[in-house]
Structures are given as C-alpha cells and as structure tokens.
C-alpha cells in the first residue's frame, strides 16, 4: 500500500488512535520556540498539503493541534515548530531527540497550491504565522518554476523572535524570491525595517488579478493586512488566510473549533477571504 493509503485507512478505521512517531531532531530556535523533526513509524510520509496540521499526543497530557512547517516535498520526516504556551507545549518542550510522540493526521484543508500554479505570490507572515507558511515557502522553492514572482513579507515583535533565521538568509540570497522583514521594536544590531507589517504592503508592486495574497499571523493582524491587500485590488478569492482555533478532535465533531457553522479542523484552517466574508460575526479576523 502507498503511504497515503495507509494513513487514510488509519484515519477511517481508528481516527482517535495516534500513530507512533519519533523525534529525530529537537532544537530551541528562539527563547520560546522549539523545532522538532519527526519521523512516523515505518518512515511513512505524512503526505500533507502545506497549511495542514497534525494532532500531537503526549500520554497524560492529551493532544494539541500543531501546524506542519515542512513541505510535503521534504520526504521521510516532517517538522513542527512549537511555542511554549501552556501545559501541553511545556511538556513537549521537555522532549528531546529519540523521544516518542503520538501523531494523528494530517487534518484540515491546506493552502490551495494547485490553484496557485502560475500566479504571483505575496506571503505576509506575522510572528508565529511564519510556521505554517514555511511549509508553503519550501513547497514553492521546491517547485519554483510553477509559480510567478514570489515576495515574502515577514513581521515580528523584535529581532530575537525571528524564526528560521538561517533559512531566511538563504531565501534573501535567492534572487528569485523577494524577501522583506520588519520588526515592531529594533535592537542595536538590527539593520532592517522597523514598524508594523502593514507598512510594508503599500510598497509591494503587484498585478492584482494574477496574484495570490497569503496571510498568516496573530488574530489581531488579519483585518489590517487583508484591508491593505484589498486596497491593492487583489480579488477576495485570491486572499488566503489560515486561522487559529481550538481544534480538538480533528474530525469536525467535538465543536471547539467552530466558527458559526464551519468546523475549522475540516473546512480550514485555510480559508479564502470570500469564505470569511460569509461569516456574520464570529470571525474576528474578517476585515471591516
């Protein structure tokens, strides 16, 4: 059987049973974030779409939804980058290379990469938003000729919170991907932009009907960034977001992740702005 078939069969017959997975690399990448490289039992490929998430299990601590930050083109393993923000993630941070985790998934709808072929791409990442976007960026880099111009705008609070610094430098070196970074507060060594991420958007040169704008960041960021992209005349269905909600079962049953009638774990976490416009009031990220 193909890896994909094995995973789908598991999901169909025993959706609540986590698969065994081994941490093959673990490293603190900032003060608060830890990077994990994970291998499923029998070295199964996760076969995800960029933007999907997995449910990570630690027995005694239940589960948490974590975005996958590697590309499906990275074979034999997948990556997670996790902020220490609660009981579960605190325990996860204590785990090291060689330790075993449980994994269910991949879940949800990822970025519409098939529809994005041939288009220009503007990626806007705020803070931890770069984590799921790293999956997409790597995917684009591995299939570079399938996409038009690619620009990445990255914002975070301070330079020491900057994730994937080595990779970022590599992205910057690559002439075929434009990269721009800003911090809310600079430190003495910082030579880049200072200011909110929204300040970078007016300067971006795009052909709106041929462009996908992809936005991932903290809840507060969306409406402002979406507003700027709308000013640029990018069509609603080409503005793509990924929303954070409290995914618990991953099967569209338990109800925690619901925005109005929509289960984010199944219909999201990736949505188009056209989807967002249909929400009547429970979607904080919708532009005003």
């Amino acid at each position: 059987m193909l890896d994909r078939e094995i995973l789908l069969e598991k999901m169909r017959t025993t959706p609540y049973l986590p698969m065994k997975a081994k941490i093959i690399e673990a490293e603190m990448v900032t003060d608060k974030e830890k990077f994990f490289r994970i291998q499923l039992e029998d070295k199964l490929n996760l076969g995800h779409v960029p933007g999907q998430f997995v449910m990570v299990s630690i027995f005694g601590y239940t589960e948490a939804p974590i975005s996958i930050c590697s590309s499906p083109t990275d074979k034999g393993y997948f990556d997670l980058t996790v902020r220490n923000a609660g009981t579960f993630t605190n325990k996860l941070h204590q785990m090291e290379k060689g330790d075993i985790l449980g994994i269910r998934g991949p879940f949800g709808k990822g970025f519409p990469v098939d529809n994005m072929f041939g288009y220009d791409i503007v990626i806007v990442a705020g803070g931890l938003g770069i984590v799921p976007l790293r999956s997409l960026i790597r995917y684009i880099m591995h299939n570079r000729n399938d996409f038009g111009n690619v620009q990445i705008l990255l914002g975070c609070r301070s330079p020491k919170e900057l994730l994937f610094e080595e990779e970022t430098k590599e992205w910057m070196k690559r002439s075929e991907i434009k990269f721009n970074c800003t911090v809310d507060r600079a430190d003495p060594d910082w030579k880049g932009n200072v200011g909110l991420i929204t300040t970078l958007i007016p300067g971006v040169d795009i052909n709106p009907t041929r462009t996908y704008g992809i936005v991932v960041g903290p809840p507060i960021m969306y409406k402002f960034v979406i507003g700027k992209l709308l000013e640029k005349k990018i069509p609603d269905h080409q503005i793509i977001v990924s929303l954070e909600r409290r995914m618990r079962c991953g099967l569209g049953k338990c109800g925690h992740c619901q925005i109005e009638g929509v289960y984010v774990c199944q219909s999201g976490p990736v949505f188009t702005y056209s989807d967002l416009k249909n929400f009547k009031g429970e979607c904080h990220e919708k532009a005003v």
């Binding site: 005694g60 923000a85 993630t89 954070e244 409290r246 338990c254 109800g255 925690h256 619901q258």
Partner: peptide, 24 residues
Amino acid sequence: GIRYRIWNSCQMDDFAKVAGGEDF
C-alpha cells in the same frame, strides 16, 4: 492510562479559547 471523551458544552468559559489566550 486511558484517553476518553467527555461531554462538553459551548456554554463553558474556555470552550473556544486557544493556547495563545484568545477566546473566540
């Protein structure tokens, strides 16, 4: 140990709260 599911309710305080603290 065992993992179980237990009835929960959208009326509860932390039902739609995420790790970052935002309550949707």
